[in-house]
Each structure stands twice: as C-alpha cells, then as structure tokens.
Design a protein around this nucleic acid. Structure first.
Lengths: 360, 360
DNA sequence: TCATTTAATGTACACGCGTACATTATGGCA
DNA sequence: TGCCATAATGTACGCGTGTACATTAAATGA
C-alpha cells in the first residue's frame, strides 16, 4: 500500500522504540514540523500560539507517547517539585500513634497533589544529625513539613538554619513561641481544659494528669489546659497528681502501680492522659489491679485514635483534626495566598473537640 | 594586613553569597586551582588522583560549603534516585491497619536510605487512573513498590504495563500467581492454618471464618489455610460459616448480628478473622449482644496490630513481619545481588507466627 | 500600499553535572 | 638520557528542558 519511505521508518521507530529510547521534545518537534521551543510553549501553555499549531503539536506528542522528563524539567526550572516530610526516626514512630502520622500524611498528600508537588519522605536520623537545610541546598526539596519536632538543641539549630537560609518550612503540632516559625497546631490548651472541665463536672475533684515529655509544646499546652480547668473550678493544683510519661502505651502502663495506690487511697478519682496510648496503657495496668475505668475512676485520653474506640469501656478522648492539619500545613507552603485568607492571621490553631465515651 | 586583592573579594563572596547564590562545581574548581572535571572525580571518587589534589579539592569544597545539586546529578545520571511507594487511595487506608503501612514503610525506608535512595510517596488515584508506568517514563522514580494492590482489571493492566516497559517494581502482600511479578509476601496459608489448628486443638469444631475481599490474594491464602486445617482435622467445610467482610472494623461489627445467632444456636463455637480490625469489630458487636470472646466463643485475628493488644480480652492473632517485608521488597529492587542470596529463590514467603492471647 | 504594531515561531543558550577522550606529568627501565 | 606505560588532569560535550532574544508572519491603521 505505502512505499517504504522515511515515513514508514518513522512509524516503525515510534511503535518499537518509544519504550526503549526515551523520546524527547526533539522527536515531537520533528513530527509536528515545528521547533522545539514551540513544542515547549504548547505543552506549558505559555505565550500566544496558533490553535492549528497547538493541535499539531499535541497530536504529535500523543502519537509518540511523549512524556516530558521530570528530571530535565526540574533541572531547567531549578525546582524539584518535592515537598519533604520529615518523620521521627523509625523507633520513635511507635511513641506516637501511627494513626496520627497517616492522617497528617494523607492531608499533606491531598494538598501537595493538588498543587503539583510530590511527597519525599525523610526519616529523621536517630543520631542527632538533622541537617534539614542540606536537603534544600541539594535541591532535593522545595519546601518541607516537619512532624514530630521536639524542642531540643539540635532541632532548634536545624530549624534556625532553615529559617536563616530562607527555606520554606512548616511545623505541625509543635510550636516555638519565641521563634515565629510557620506552624500549624491544634488548640490543645482548650482541648485539655475541656476534658478536665468534663471530669470536674462529674464531681471529680482529684484529677490526675499523665503528661508527655516537655520537649513537646503539646505537653505544655495540655498542662496549661489542665491547670486552667482546675483553677476555674477552684481546685488546688497538686503536683503529686501530675505524672510524666512519654506518649507510649508502655509508659502509661508503668504508671499504673503508683496510680492504683492513689486511687485506692482516695487521692485520685480521675485521670486525664495527654494521649490515648498512655491512657490505654494505664487503663490496662489498672485493670490488672482490679481498678476499672468509668467505674472506680474516670479516664480521658487525647487524639481520638482508632485505639480509643476499641477498648472496653470505650475511651473518652479529644478529637484532633490531623488530616486538616496536614492539609493546612501543605497549603501554607504551597499556596500561601489562599492559606492566609483561610485562617485568621496568626491563627494557626485548629479547634479540637471533646468526645465523651464510656470511661468518664 | 592583607591588601585588598581579588583574593579578598573571593572570600567576601564566600562568606556572604554562599547561601544566596548556590555555588557550583565551578567555584570549587577555581578555589582549588583545578578543573571542574577533577572536582567531579574527587567528589565521586572515580579514577586515579593525587592525594594532594584530593585534599585541596575537599578543602575548597568544605570552605565554600559546596553541596552538589541533586537536580543536576539526577539529570546527568538520568536517574532520579527515588523509589516510588504506591499507597492505597486515602479513604482506603482506613480499611487496612495504618500500623501495617507504617511498618512496611519504615522497612522500605531503612533499606532505601542505605542504598542511597529516597522515598517518593504516591497515593493511588481513587478513580481507576493508575498509570504507574508514567512515573517511570517521566523519570520521577527508578523503581517502585506497590502496596495494597488488588486483583482488579485496572491494576493488572497497570502492572502489566510496568512489566512490559521493563520497569523494576515489587509487590508487597499481594501475589499474581499467573504473572511472575517480583513479590514479597508472608505465608498466610500457613498462618491461617496454624490459627485454625489452634482453635481445633481447643476442641472447637464449628469454626467460622470472616474473610476479606477476594481481590486480595491474602484472602484466598487465608481461606486455603482455614480449609486445610479443617481438612486435617476431618472437619467438614460448611459454607454457612464463611463470611465476607472488607477488612474494616465496621465490616466485622456488622457481622455480629448473624454470628451471634449462630453462636447462640450452637452453630459456631469459634471465629477466625482474616485481620485484627474485623476481629475487633466482631468482638465489640458480639459483646454488645452479651457474647464474650474467650468465654462464649474463641476468636483469633490476624496481623498482631497494636489494636490486638488493647482489647480486653487481648486478641489472639498471627504476627506478620511487616517491617521485614518492607526491607526485603526494597532490597529486591535496590540490591538484587544480595536479595537473591538472602532468600531461597522464588521463596518470597516470609514466615508468620501465631500468637495466643486471651480470646482463644 | 506601506509603516507599525502585535502574534507566532525559530534560534541559541544556560542550567550543573558526569564522563569520553585528549593531553600532560610522572616514574621505571634500558 | 630517552622511551614508554601509566597516572593525573584538562577539554569538550551531552543530558532535555525553559526561555530571552531574534526573526518572521499577520493584523492594524493611515
């Protein structure tokens, strides 16, 4: 039918080699009979162009199955198109709810995708070597979101370096009030106050508090909320009722011995734990000692994690909009114009809500 | 002391602009008094070089705070250095244990970091548009690991295209036995058989099975293991004892009505659920009907998730080495020479182990 | 019709690195 | 000393885009 001309050679090339030799702008340009620049302009929709040309180029691109090389684009644009997400070192993940991270990560992913960014996962080095700024200098990422940040010297140094370098980043669930970093947090003070108010409203007067490590601003917020609620109700602060865990279930479990005695002795009639995991550990530890949540004492956790729904009795807790927080953190970095309008400025605080279940 | 020469201008440049204008190989070369190629060779440790030169270059690089541009490197090497990790669409995540993903992800991350790769997170599109191969054609990733794969036509097509394109990928926890894809799975047949054997050994003879959707090879494996154990014990298969859930807690919960009746009627004396979430949902649903696990019936879950430890009674289950599976999947792709030696060839199956707790 | 603006396209180069190849230093050996 | 093999380094270019600038085509106005 057709003579074996150059055209046929071309189509042979297309059908056979398109998967072998990556075809580039050049081939598309040749097929469409235009210059490479025109191809580029059509695909990026920049500058004026004749509709006819546009169609020819798009057709040629489709025919060749052309896909621009992200590598070359990134290089030419000097942007990686990646948002780095910094996660706690592997073993630390288990201190937090994994639920916590998957929710936040999903939220970040949603916004990032919408803005044309990809997510680069970065596990924090266990041994203090946290050179976040290097990731920017290497141009691996254009922005980054820091999860599980703790107020320790190495972390402060790393963040200060980011700031000094002018690198866009956003903290989630951790504030450095003296630093004015971009931050998305939830109103843990209000959440804790609410939780403790609830306990007080039940007539409890000896409310213990199991907090997490003080390197997390979350912990300070919760303490503040706890104290505020007590003060409101005219209940005196009692330091013996304040305990320190590390947000792991185990740490809650291990406090059960001490707390059991106090409950038996009438020194404690309710417990507010700074997260569900510790609350659950405590619940289990106390149960082993014959002390039942919701019966011998009231218990409230924090996070509304999956776990809070599967204990029995079900755990009262405070719901935190992790997914929203992730979305917002990403939006702050990737679409700052929208971000500002969406929040009352400086209002990085998302609302939380107390959820009463069976342990209180 | 020093005259204001070009040298001083240079050091001014270093101290002030090193963070503003990204310095490149060129500046290092000039400062070290060598060619750019030599800088490159020193930094990549390629070819012979004089120790003296090496030191000069490294010193210059350090002095300038030089960091190679990952973008340019990737472009020149035509490798992104990224491993794509494909995750279920956001809403789906909740069907799986988030524990499951964070474990596997950590395992992948460990190996990837060791091999000098980064992790690019990719959420599967909800609407069937899963063009995995495009990620390779765009050169966004050099390899990919597919999590939560389901045997549906779109998925098969996407995987077939990957294979046809010669793109390295590895499935985790899902097999396509007719396709010979690179896969890392655990021995769910053995795990399920073990779990059911245990129930039978307790004298149970009417063991129900709550399975997940059949698009997951995991589900088929578990069914097979369940049936194998029954057959061994000479217990006849009874289709009315086989139920279909979707791996969510809710789906287990919703089966409670039917199963409660059967337990009361003596038609069921034990339940093996294909994952912990369904087991927990069922446990809760039955409890609401006054039927207690470990008491009125025996219950075994699957996954050894966090949740299995916090129910009461604690859930008997089957532990799966998710972290190891992640490590191995990554190793398969990134260090195939080691991977092959580590496993008996074709032996993609990792062992699982039954864990007896209080519900059985 | 021609001059002048504006639309549409082409030409040329930078981006920062890796690396093939050319070139120059070095050392061994006769 | 001269020759050769090899070590060490330099030169030059490609990788596939984006885009500034130059050029040409079309449109507008007198």
């Amino acid at each position: 039918m057709y003579a074996c001309t150059l055209n046929d050679e071309d189509s042979l090339e297309h059908s056979l080699f398109r998967r072998l030799w990556n075809i580039s702008r050049k081939e598309v340009a040749k097929l469409a009979g235009v210059s490479e620049a025109t191809v580029s302009r059509v695909l990026n929709n920049v500058g004026p162009m004749k509709e006819k040309t546009r169609e020819r180029v798009l057709k040629a691109a489709a025919e060749l199955g052309y896909v621009p090389s992200a590598l070359a684009q990134q290089f030419a644009r000097r942007r990686s198109g990646n948002v780095g997400v910094i996660l706690p070192a592997v073993p630390k993940v288990h201190l937090f709810s994994t639920y916590y991270f998957s929710e936040i990560l999903s939220g970040i992913g949603e916004t990032a995708k919408r803005c044309g960014y990809d997510l680069l996962l970065i596990f924090r080095e266990p041994e203090g070597a946290r050179d976040y700024a290097k990731l920017f200098r290497m141009q691996k990422i254009d922005a980054c979101i820091v999860l599980g940040s703790r107020d320790v010297p190495e972390e402060r140094a790393a963040l200060a370096e980011l700031k000094a370098g002018g690198h866009p980043f956003c903290l989630v669930n951790q504030r450095y009030d003296d630093e004015r970093y971009e931050t998305v947090d939830a109103d843990h003070l209000a959440g804790s106050r609410e939780a403790v108010r609830h306990l007080l409203a039940q007539g409890k007067r000896k409310v213990a508090f199991v907090n997490g490590p003080e390197e997390y601003s979350n912990s300070a917020d919760r303490l503040e909320g706890y104290l505020a609620a007590l003060a409101e109700a005219g209940v005196e602060r009692e330091d013996e009722r304040i305990f320190a865990g590390n947000y792991s279930r185990k740490s809650g479990y291990e406090l059960a011995g001490t707390i059991a005695e106090r409950i038996r002795g009438g020194g404690i009639d309710a417990v507010f734990a700074a997260n569900d995991r510790m609350a659950i550990g405590l619940l289990q530890g106390l149960r082993e000692r014959g002390i039942e949540a919701g019966d011998h004492y009231a218990l409230v956790g924090y996070d509304d994690s999956d776990g809070s729904r599967i204990t029995s009795p079900r755990l009262s807790t405070v719901a935190v909009p992790f997914y929203e927080m992730g979305r917002m953190a990403a939006a702050r970095l990737l679409e700052p114009e929208l971000g500002d309008s969406a929040l009352q400025d400086g209002g990085t605080m998302l609302p939380v809500s107390f959820i009463r279940r069976e342990t209180s």
